[in-house]
Structure formats: structure tokens, C-alpha cells
Design a protein around this nucleic acid. Structure first.
Lengths: 256, 256
DNA sequence: TCCTCCTGATTGGTATACCAGTATGGTATC
DNA sequence: GATACCATACTGGTATACCAATCAGGAGGA
């Protein structure tokens, strides 16, 4: 038997432009569909990271079609990719935006410490003097930018640069994954001027240890920075916890 | 206009069983398609890891259909998943079975050392006495099995167990990824009885350090084991290099 | 009033038609 | 004989029809 819907939409199929889904013609309630659309995966990722798609929210492939102006096949592909990044999860029922899990954040912090201590140790061995001077400069650049843009990308840029200087792509990729999973906490956390100030000093301490090619010192500075950062995060989350729960986001686990 | 092929295959469509592709009826030249088929991803993964799909080999989604008795959609999904594991890669042209890259193996070894030293350090802190006794027992079990099955899964089972005892799922997952990327080298490597014997002793050293809850000793034993293993691998690869190239597999990088 | 069963809607999973871009081979021309 | 060009046969990317399973809601009975 020939597809009945195929016949029904035959006219529309004949006239529609190349690879545009029928629904895209009227993206009335579109969320991220308004922009020129770089690529679907990036837009969906952005929607998750910006909390436009809330942690714990159920997603259906068909429901996402009109929102993102694409058909199920690419949406499904994007979901699978996001799943491999831990931003979305699949249960027998369907898809869910990964909840923010405080236990996971703790485990993640521990993992991150392992990665970053190794990263700075290798960086002291391998990076050129120019590279390390560049790191010190980067600290200043990002710190001045931080007053402007609220310090959003501040920390991660610095840490990404260190990872690159380690010369080990697996370390860099793993850290990238950690930063991705950590990203959404920035929206839940209150960042005071003084906490930014302290983070800046900690970055400087790391940069200095790197310049003097002191692996032990660099590892220590990194550990201190990461632990202080984690503590600031947890304090902030605990303070906001009641309000966060009320916002409809799923936040699981103990904040110890 | 209605799909012409749709009409052409209408009869076949009407009679075919639920979710079986038409081509599956005659999987003449099937490779992995013969078995009852657990799930497609697992079979394709197995085909890559067993070198049934050779390193560097070009893959086309349509070409894989008859081999695995599935249609493009699930094959594509499996390829994307394998891509995220580093077993398959996507260039502008299409899909390729990931070549075995000796440079990558070196970077991977370094990464692994970072992971496993952290793993045993955490295991000395967290694992129960029973767990650690179990590790010592596992060494013996796997060593006796190694004489039987050529020691195929020997090393990885031990290391996986350690990862689990670290109590950090990210460390365990990352190590899993490393072991996956490393897996295919076992087919290129000659494993002598004495090398297995040495690996056994190294495993025992690790287990002993764990039982005495000696983090520094455990880290040292792990580093020694991993470096010795890596050296055995590189020696074996260098010795076989010419023969390996002739086998049609792509093997890239310097074996230093 | 509560429980049960049935029906419709919704889910992900799959097969496949079509598209645009690209490589490849043969042919015709110089 | 060499080279340029064109047709054909691929490639992955996309849209969509269909399937089975499962969930939700309502109607009917106890």
C-alpha cells in the first residue's frame, strides 16, 4: 500500500524549497528557531546550556521539530550527540534534559582536579616561554573583560588554554567535557565582585608557578583554585536551593 | 510527484515483516549479519574492534546495509556513536574506520597514566578491605584464565575493577574510553608467555600496595606497570611494522 | 464511589524516497 | 596521444511514512 500521507502532501512536496521542513514555513512559537540557524546541534546545545530547555525537562523528538525548524532525523542526531556529552539523557520513556545533580558535581570536581593537576604539570614541562608569558597576559585580559561581561567565559578560557599547553589532546578533550557539564551551574550561582577578585588572584598564582616552571607549585595552585571555586559554587547553590527548586528545574543530590 | 521507487517497491512493502529491511532477506555476503543480532551498535563495534572492518577502511552507510542487515537510519546512528568513541571518523568525504595512530597511542598512554594513578590513589582511600582482597583474588583468577584464553581480556578486567573501586564514575568512564581506543592493538601485538608473566607480577605489586593502603606505592606500581606495558607494545609493533602495513590496515605516526 | 477495561494519542525506532554536492569514468576534441 | 569536458554513479544529509509499545483518559460496570 502506498503511503497515504505521501499522496496528501505531494503538492507541498513538489513546491517546497530544497531541504526545508514544511513546518519551518510557520515557526510561530519558535524558541531558538528565529536566528539564521548555524547548525542544529549547536542551537540545541545552546538551548540546553542557557536553560532555555530546563534541567529535567522532557523532550520529544516531534515536539522539538517546530521549535527548531528541523525534521526528526537531524533532531534525533543532535539529541544523540548531546547525550554523549551528558547534556541530555535517554530513558525507556524518551529524552530528558539532564538534571543538575549535585552529587555529580562533586564527582566532577574530583575528576577535574585530576585532569588539571596533570595539565599544569605537563605544561610546565612542555610549554614555551612565550606560551607561558601568554598565559599570564591572558589572566589580565580575561580579568578586565570580566568586569564588562560579568565574567561569564572568564574561568573556562583560562583553563582551556592551560589544557592546550599540556600538549595532550585527551586531557584537553576530557576537560572540555567537564566544563560542558559544569556550564549550567553558572546560571544558578551568584558571582560577587570579591569572588571574581579571588579567582583572579588564584589564576595569577597558577600563571606565576607556570612561568617559574614549578610543577609542584603549579599543581598546588590549581588544587587551591579548584577547591575554592567548588566551595564558592556549593555555598551559592545551598543559599539558593529553595528558590532553584521552585523554578521548575530538576536539581538532584545532596549539596554537602 | 509521488515517489517512483515507492510505487516500485509497494508490493514488497506490503508483504515484508515488521521492521526488517528488504535486503536482509538475502544477506549473501554478510559478515556479522549471520548471528542472531543483539543490537546493531554492538555488532558494528565488534566488527571494528576485531579488525573485521580494517583500520583506515572507508565505510559507506549504504554499503553497510547488506552487511549488517539494517537500514541506513540505525546504521547511521551506530556510526555516530562509534565516532564519539573514536572508533570511526567522519571527514567531508564520508566515514572511515579510525586508523591506528602510533602518536595517538603515545598520548593515550600518558592520559591513561594520569587516570590510573588517580584511580589507585582513590581506591586506597575508599575501597573496603573486602574489595581489596577481591582485587588480589582477581589477579590470580585472571592469570589462570590467561593461559587458557591467550590472556585476551586479562589486563582490562583488572584495570576496570580498579576504576570501579575509585568510586569516581568519570574516571571509570574515561578509562573505559582509553581501553576502547587501545583495544585493537592487541591484535597487532605478540604476547609472549614471559610478557604475560611479567604483567602478572606487576598486577600483584599493584594489588599488594592497595591492600597495605599505600597510595604512593600503588601509584608507583601502576606507573611501572603501564610504562612496561607500553614499551612491550611499542617493541612488538616496531618488530611487526612492515608486515602490518602490508595487511592493508592504515597505521599512522611514529613508533618512537 | 471506585475499579477495570478499552481506546486514542504519543513515544522512540525504522525504512526509504529525495536532494545537492562530488568524484569518476569515458568520450570527444584538439 | 593528451587533455578537457560531461554524464553517471556515488556520498552524506534530510524529510517523512509506518510500526510497536506504552501512556492517559474516559466509559462502563460493580
Amino acid at each position: 500500500m502506498v503511503d497515504s500521507e505521501d499522496r496528501a502532501t505531494a503538492a507541498a512536496t513538489a513546491t517546497r524549497a530544497a531541504a526545508t521542513p514544511a513546518a519551518a514555513a510557520t515557526p510561530a512559537t519558535a524558541l531558538a528557531a528565529e536566528r539564521p540557524a548555524p547548525d542544529l546541534y549547536a542551537r540545541m546545545r545552546e538551548a540546553v546550556l542557557s536553560l532555555e530547555l530546563a534541567p529535567g525537562q522532557r523532550l520529544s523528538e516531534r515536539g522539538l521539530e517546530p521549535q527548531f525548524g528541523a525534521s526528526r532525523t537531524p533532531i534525533r542526531a543532535a539529541l544523540m550527540r548531546l547525550e554523549s556529552e551528558g547534556l541530555v539523557s535517554r530513558d525507556p520513556r524518551g529524552w530528558t534534559v539532564a538534571p543538575i545533580d549535585l552529587d555529580e558535581l562533586a564527582t566532577l570536581a574530583e575528576f577535574r582536579e585530576v585532569l588539571e593537576t596533570a595539565i599544569v604539570r605537563l605544561a610546565t614541562e612542555r610549554a614555551s616561554d612565550d606560551d607561558l608569558a601568554g598565559v599570564a597576559e591572558l589572566v589580565m585580559t580575561l580579568s578586565s573583560a570580566s568586569s564588562a561581561d560579568d565574567g561569564l567565559g572568564t574561568g573556562t578560557g583560562f583553563h582551556r588554554e592551560l589544557a592546550s599547553l599540556s600538549g595532550n589532546t585527551f586531557l584537553a578533550t576530557a576537560l572540555e567535557g567537564v566544563l560542558t557539564r559544569l556550564y549550567r551551574t553558572r546560571w544558578l550561582e551568584v558571582r560577587s565582585a570579591e569572588s571574581r577578585e579571588r579567582a583572579l588572584h588564584e589564576h595569577e598564582a597558577i600563571a606565576n608557578a607556570l612561568r617559574s616552571r614549578d610543577p609542584a607549585g603549579a599543581e598546588l595552585a590549581v588544587v587551591q583554585h579548584l577547591r575554592a571555586t567548588q566551595q564558592r559554587l556549593l555555598e551559592s547553590l545551598n543559599a539558593n536551593r529553595v528558590g532553584l527548586r521552585a523554578s521548575g528545574m530538576t536539581i538532584a543530590g545532596d549539596a554537602r
